[in-house]
Design a binder for these strands. Sequence first.
RNA 1: GAAGUGAGAUGAGAUAGCCGCUGCCCCGAUGUCAUGUCGGGGUGGAGGAAAGUCCGGACUCCACAGGGCAGGGAGGUCGCUAACAGCGACCGGGAGCAAUCUCAGGGAUAAGGACCACAGAAAACAAACCGCCCCGAUGUUACAUCGGGGUAAGGGUGAAACGGCGGGGUAAAAGCCCACCAGCUCCGAUGGUGACAUCGGAGGCUAGGCAACCCCCUCCCGGAGCAAGACCAAAUAGGAAGGCAUUUAAGGAUGGCCCGUCCGCGCCUUCGGGUUGGUUGCUUGAGGUGCUGAGCAAUCAGCAUCCCAGAUGAAUGGCUAUCUCCCCGGUGCUAUAUCGGGGGAAACAGAAUCCGGCUUACAAUCUCACUUCAGCG
RNA 2: GCCCCCGUAGCUCAGAUGGAUAGAGCAGCAGAUUCCUAAUCUGUUGGCCGGACGUUCGAAUCGUCUCGGGGGCG
Length: 120
Amino acid sequence: MGQYSFSRAERILRSKDFTLVRKEGERVASKNLVIFLKTNKLGIKRFGLGVSTKIGEAVKRNRIKRLLREFFRLNKEVFPLSTDVFISVKQGFNPAGYKEVEAEIKSVILGCNFGREVKP
RNA sequence: GAAGUGAGAUGAGAUAGCCGCUGCCCCGAUGUCAUGUCGGGGUGGAGGAAAGUCCGGACUCCACAGGGCAGGGAGGUCGCUAACAGCGACCGGGAGCAAUCUCAGGGAUAAGGACCACAGAAAACAAACCGCCCCGAUGUUACAUCGGGGUAAGGGUGAAACGGCGGGGUAAAAGCCCACCAGCUCCGAUGGUGACAUCGGAGGCUAGGCAACCCCCUCCCGGAGCAAGACCAAAUAGGAAGGCAUUUAAGGAUGGCCCGUCCGCGCCUUCGGGUUGGUUGCUUGAGGUGCUGAGCAAUCAGCAUCCCAGAUGAAUGGCUAUCUCCCCGGUGCUAUAUCGGGGGAAACAGAAUCCGGCUUACAAUCUCACUUCAGCG
RNA sequence: GCCCCCGUAGCUCAGAUGGAUAGAGCAGCAGAUUCCUAAUCUGUUGGCCGGACGUUCGAAUCGUCUCGGGGGCG
């Protein structure tokens, strides 16, 4: 498994897992995004997305999802080990490019201290 | 050359590099009863509208898709098609100088009902308000008033007032009569598959609009939808099938109702659901491309050749560079050009069972055909 | 995939059996009242009825096509 890959095992696929992360996970919000974090027992970082139809048409939603996935793929070291990550997009999000997405998520994630007090 | 009409085509702007996702094939490693997992390589990977879901089919299940009512749909003709509310050609009405565009284009005389506000005398088996005319009575000179009658030519109202115009006719009038015109109905001839067109004859003079109100006529439509449906695994008890006996009946089996068909309460035997997850359905098809032939065309036939997305918390992407395009500024200028800088997910938009249409959205560029006007030869 | 509802004044709604000036409440504006404000009372402004085309003498109303918004089922 390469460092920058994004295989099926690294995705949240079950409906149960999604509801668990949303209900029980730690919640961090930025202007346009809400990020849920929850420790799992798999030893893998997993990623999931929530983009509703209120965000826009299919083309716009697809682009947002691709940009968010790209961020997770390239910046896995930002997230703690063995964690489920779920990102929900708020209404009105309209990123111009990848760099805008990267800056927004990093500013939120590096500011929160989820999982860091657990690590030695 | 200008103006216009119609029909199309292309359309993540292009190339390269790096990092990813996904279907199929091959190789290697590893593991299993088996499907797998990981790594590497090869090869495919959004659209003309994939959209809206407005129609029509294929396919699947419900009974093999049955009968009647209700309900819905299509309305010029002929053709094309798997089918259609689509397409083609033609006919008829309307618009335009023309190319061409446009029409829900059956029936109001095959039957019937409803409605037609306001205005107006009257709005639908017609009708007398004003006016015109005749007769009678009274005042009594013409004339006026009252009563009885005739009259749809004139006035005014209205979207619409029961043919037009001229002549005859009359007390005044009127298709009351006549000629011409328009329209209607019927008959015949010719041409056309037909809608219909042209011509001839006869009739009776007139028959308002509205069917995108009900209705009538002709034709068509059973219902649901790939989350259809089939299979496997796990976990769990309110099920299913067959046989026997009983019974005619609430209810169920997917259409709104009725009929019809099947099931039905109990006992015995056998098999195993809802739900969740996975596999399948799933992409080779009314398929694409090319050529030839038939047809005015839509389209069809034959031959050759190609395989061209199959995701499923849902792939088809991100970044960088260069070029192109667009914007701004300088030089220069009718302009082209050249130099520098900056910006752009550069239009509309993302497959979800698959096809045929329709409709809507759309940056930029290109092609073809035709019409009118102008100029030159 | 299938289905339904709603667009009328700045806002919330009537009007929907076609008939001519499209109403009501709140808000706005002006005036009265008050020392001033609120409340109250009186008057008044504001609409091509989401858009286009059609049927009709006449359309917010009927028909078709569209655009936008909202919701439901599996």
